Amino acid sequence: MAELYDKCIKNGLRMTLPRKVILEVIEDSEDHPDVDELYRRAVSKDRSISIATVYRTIKLFEESGIIERLDIGDGRARYEEAGEHHEHLIDIESGEIIEFQNEELEEMKRQVALKMGYELVDHRLELFGKKIKN
């Protein structure tokens, strides 16, 4: 938890016990949980944490660049640690989110922006698909 905790301190966030627990839950997540799931996981570690605390903390962490919001089209915001750039492939049948990096795709996005007279400064890309059944 040291890396995310250090980011919080560097951003001037006061780290209360509930915030530390929520941060630990985020860091331990291998998936992309929504707020309700983060709340369930946090409460299993500290029963005194309220859903309102989770919502406020998630908003604060997002505004501070500690976590990023991900919209996979199901109406629920998902969250992950902010960090190295990557893309997402979302399985529309199972909801599984697969992270990937592809330098050819990155170059293509830069070239598209350049051809339109822009320097690419940021972007997000989510691909939605169904597993091919043989």
Score class of each variant (00 low, 15 high):
residue 48 S to C: 06
residue 100 F to D: 03
residue 67 I to C: 08
residue 71 D to V: 09
residue 61 F to A: 04
residue 36 D to F: 12
residue 35 V to L: 10
residue 37 E to L: 13
residue 103 E to W: 02
residue 29 S to F: 12
residue 25 V to Q: 04
residue 25 V to A: 04
residue 71 D to G: 08
residue 33 P to E: 13
residue 71 D to R: 11
residue 94 S to H: 03
residue 71 D to S: 14
residue 25 V to N: 04
residue 17 L to F: 06
residue 68 E to M: 11
residue 16 T to Y: 06
residue 110 R to N: 05
residue 67 I to T: 11
residue 76 R to G: 07
residue 91 D to W: 05
residue 19 R to D: 08
residue 19 R to Y: 06
residue 80 E to L: 11
residue 86 H to M: 05
residue 46 D to H: 10
residue 89 L to T: 01
residue 108 M to A: 05
residue 55 Y to M: 04
residue 58 I to F: 01
residue 113 A to K: 10
residue 12 G to N: 13
residue 110 R to T: 02
residue 30 E to C: 03
residue 103 E to G: 01
residue 17 L to V: 08
residue 105 L to R: 00
residue 27 E to Q: 14
residue 18 P to W: 01
residue 68 E to I: 12
residue 96 E to F: 05
residue 106 E to W: 00
residue 40 R to H: 14
residue 56 R to H: 07
residue 36 D to C: 12
residue 68 E to F: 05
residue 22 I to G: 01
residue 63 E to N: 15
residue 13 L to Y: 08
residue 93 E to G: 07
residue 65 G to I: 15
residue 77 A to S: 12
residue 43 V to C: 06
residue 42 A to H: 03
residue 67 I to S: 09
residue 85 H to F: 12
residue 85 H to S: 09
residue 40 R to A: 14
residue 31 D to L: 05
residue 26 I to P: 07
residue 37 E to H: 05
residue 55 Y to S: 06
residue 87 E to C: 07
residue 87 E to N: 13
residue 82 A to I: 13
residue 52 A to I: 01
residue 96 E to I: 07
residue 89 L to P: 01
residue 110 R to I: 00
residue 75 G to L: 09
